[in-house]
Structures are given as C-alpha cells and as structure tokens.
Nucleic acid binder design. Sequence first.
DNA 1: AAGTTTATCAACCGCGTAACA
DNA 2: ATGTTACGCGGTTGATAAACT
Length: 302
Amino acid sequence: MGRAPCCDKATVKKGPWSPEEDAMLKNYIEEHGTGGNWIALPHKIGLKRCGKSCRLRWLNYLRPNIKHGDFTPEEDSIICSLYISIGSRWSIIAAQLPGRTDNDVKNYWNTKLKKRLLGRRKDRETHHHQSATAAVSEMSTDNMNDGERALSASAMERIQLCMQLQELQNPLGAHHNPLVWPGTLSSNSFNSNSSNVTVAEQGQSSSMNEPLVDAQLEGVAMDGLGSPSSAENSNMISMEAELEELLYGEGNRGKAGVVDGGAQQGDVDWWSYDQGKSPVGSWDFTPEANAVFQDYTSVYDI
DNA sequence: AAGTTTATCAACCGCGTAACA
DNA sequence: ATGTTACGCGGTTGATAAACT
C-alpha cells in the first residue's frame, strides 16, 4: 500500500509548462495569492496541473526576482562552505543566496561545483597521500554491509572534501596523521566555523532570509569550544584561499575575492569566525554533524 | 553528416512532518 | 491523542542541447 496520490494522475498534465500555463498561474497568484492551498489552486485557475507542480513552477521559475544561471564566485564559495558544513540542505543553502532556488543550487552543485572540486582533487592527488584515500575507497566497498554502504553520498562527499582540504593544508602530515574529523581533536587544523555563516549579517542577505532560515542556521551552528588562536585564524584564512584555489585554479586566486562595492571575500568571512559574536572555533557538532560523524566512525572504525 | 555520449536543468516522485480537525 | 491533509524538501528522472567521434 503506497501513499494516496495527491492528485488524479489520469487527468493531470505532466511535463514542461507552456507559456500559456505560466501566464495563467503567474497572473492568478499575483492577483489573488496562493490562498494557502496549492492543491486547490489549479482547480481555481482551470489548470490541469497537480498542485505540487504549480507550487514548484512558481517557486523555481515564475516567482519574482528569480536569478538563473551565472553563479558568481561568491555564490560558489557560499555553496561550498555550507555544503561541507551542513550537507545537502539545499533549501537552507539557497536561502543564503538571494534569487536562487534550492533546485538551482542543487543542480549547480551536482553538475558543476562538485565536479570542479573533486575533479581538481584528482588532479592534485599524489602518491604520498594516496594511501589515505585508497583506504577510504577500499573500506567503502569491501567491508561494508548494506547499511554501511548506504552511507549517504552526501556524507561521503563531505568526508572527501574535508580530506582534500586537510591534505592541502598539510600535504605531508595527511599521510602520517589519522584522518582528522573536524571536532575530534581540540587542535584540529580544520576548525571551520562555516556553518556559523553570517552572510545575512554581512549584507548579502535579502528578504528571502526569513527568521526561520536564520533559526535553522542557528540550529546548525556549532557549540563553542573556545576562542581560536591567531594561528587558527591564519589557518582559516589559508583554508579560504585553498578552497578558492580549488574552485578557480592556481593563478586565479582572488577571483572570488572582489564582491560588489569592492569588498573583499575576506569581508564576507564565510570560512571564518563570526566576529560580531563571541568567536567559536569548532566544527559543527550538531545532530546532523554528529550523525555524519557516526556514519564515518562506524565505517572507518576510528 | 550521422551517430553516440555527456552535460544540463526542469519537473516529478515520495517521504517526513507540521498543521489542523 | 489520533488520523488526515497538505506542504516542503531532497533525490531522481527524462528531455533537450552540446560536444565528441
């Protein structure tokens, strides 16, 4: 027994929207609003569409101030840092990018950003730290039961990206040190506070960043484990540069740095500490992060 | 020029959950 | 407290375009 369908599949039209349908939906919503009931909406308008389809079309395409294509380097950076920090919470990530939809961000990550990051990682891998990654891939297939194999791709990607960044930070040490999951060591070199993103406070937010979203981000903010040392802060700056390099390649450092108004990327501070509040220097140990960490420890038997 | 592969993105599907009766 | 309904989300699919052979 599956769940009851939300609409009558036989009478509902599927596939691409025609300009006429777009116009009908747009005009109606602009005039009357959604009425708080997407299921009833298509009937009111006379559209042979599922309510969910109408909602999606409105949110992803017809809604005012939607931006399509051409993600900026700043947006790339925000997506990467948030993805590494909170995973595939696309709606939360998109909320930090005015005019972007979760679908857009998700597609962009899956088709471009992920490849750019992981692709460059491949290029840069050298045998002196291949053992670590080889161990990961070996463990990820051979000694896993189905449940373990089901370790989310998201978690795996985050692990890979963490490793990549750690290796960049400390290419020689990576081989000798056990894989350092953020938060497992107090003197962790990867003390990203990226989930404590303060984009909204940095003037990059918009009306899209409703309190709910801020609250959600608050929810994934880490508990503080003390102030970062100046060395840690310089690590943050270095990390920021490394990610930039991953995204844009060597020789293109700083491409992401200039934002509107001439501010520098550092001002956005997306990798860094929230300077307006008491700084914290830990990885996010939220339930989500803990879940990923537990996946990680169960698979890799730390 | 034709066929094949790869990349992109809009749209769909189903699940979890909040809201409500 | 329980059941039902609708919403919102993330994963996936499918159509189309672009690139390649």
